[in-house]
Design a binder for these strands. Structure first.
Lengths: 186, 186
DNA sequence: GTCTATAATAGGATAGAC
DNA sequence: GTCTATCCTATTATAGAC
């Protein structure tokens, strides 16, 4: 009875990387197998639903990771400006300074958006809501706060696309550095 | 000797739609065949290089379309503000008010970015350069103009992702309406 | 230039031994 | 839990008739 080669959580992380890089359709089981070190059959042992179940697990784990690593600074104690600074640092780490694609973006733009519409929409909403809440605490009116939060999330997504297109991560880093001030500007 | 069912240009447009919706890997020849009305064999008659050649032709045609429909307003005569307004309208048409994905974004985020790195980079550069030039004519300093142009392109890409994720095209339309003023603000 | 037919391959998924 | 072997389907791609 061989022991597990990798924890479930680590496996899902690796699978997430494959989806991130190749999109849903481009992520072949061969690549996932290589990336996790698990054979095809083992993958089906862990994820009986196949590729679709893997993707759902990836979304679940992503939701938790976003909640802990990114949204947590936003809901912590402290002045809005400080919280946004910590948030921006968290986002930068999360995307490995702009070299790591956004999983949500990759899924949205690769034909899988119909299949995972609910998951995608929920993930974006959580981002926007948390940012909007911080802006409101800083005294920004509700509709304007929402508007800025949408902008911020969009700018991150767009910066990842452009950085990758131009093959220059500095664009992403610059945009991220500007976001906290933009969210709170009067 | 049957006549051509569709002009080459139209065929490439249809193929572009398929890549836009499904990404490079997700775009199957079956779908392309259905979308163009051309049988598999006919597709290979027109594009002996197969799917990869189709993608390259799509990029070429996209470059021309961007040049004519989108960048042209930027280089036309008139005050910078007017040109940017016309440009924004052109972009809105181009993306069908936000319901039509960006081909560049779909390609960037679907594993094909290595294969088409040069094409993608060139397309983004052309966008950024043209916008930057308009901002400079409006009296903005060169580095700042470049910065704003990058931001504008990124915001369009991000808005398309977010609109699709939220399934609400109004976000895209709002962002687009704000861009001209942002590019020229003092 | 399009068609039907078909090859060749890669992909997702499963069975059963260990 | 992992392995080897295998099935089935969909995919890319080609050949040859018209």
């Amino acid at each position: 009875m061989p022991a597990a080669k990798i924890t479930r959580e680590d496996a899902i992380d690796r699978i997430a990387d494959v989806f991130r890089s190749y999109g849903y359709d481009g992520a072949s089981l061969t690549e996932i197998s290589k990336s996790t070190g698990l054979g095809r059959a083992s993958l089906y042992h862990h994820f009986p639903g196949g590729k679709e179940e893997m993707a759902r697990e990836v979304f679940d784990q992503l939701g938790r990771a976003i909640g802990e690593d990114i949204l947590q600074p936003l809901t912590a104690r402290g002045a809005p400006a400080e919280r946004l600074e910590r948030w921006a640092k968290g986002v930068e780490r999360f995307y490995a300074k702009g070299t790591k694609n956004c999983l949500l973006g990759a899924m949205v733009l690769s034909g899988s958006s119909d299949r995972f519409a609910a998951e995608l929409s929920a993930a974006f909403q959580a981002w926007i809501d948390a940012l909007s809440q911080v802006a409101r605490e800083a005294g920004i009116a509700k509709p304007e706060a929402r508007r800025r939060a949408e902008n911020a999330v969009g700018r991150i997504q767009g910066a990842l696309v452009v950085s990758r297109g131009l093959r220059d991560a500095r664009h992403f880093q610059r945009v991220l550095a500007e976001l906290p001030a933009e969210l709170l500007a009067s």
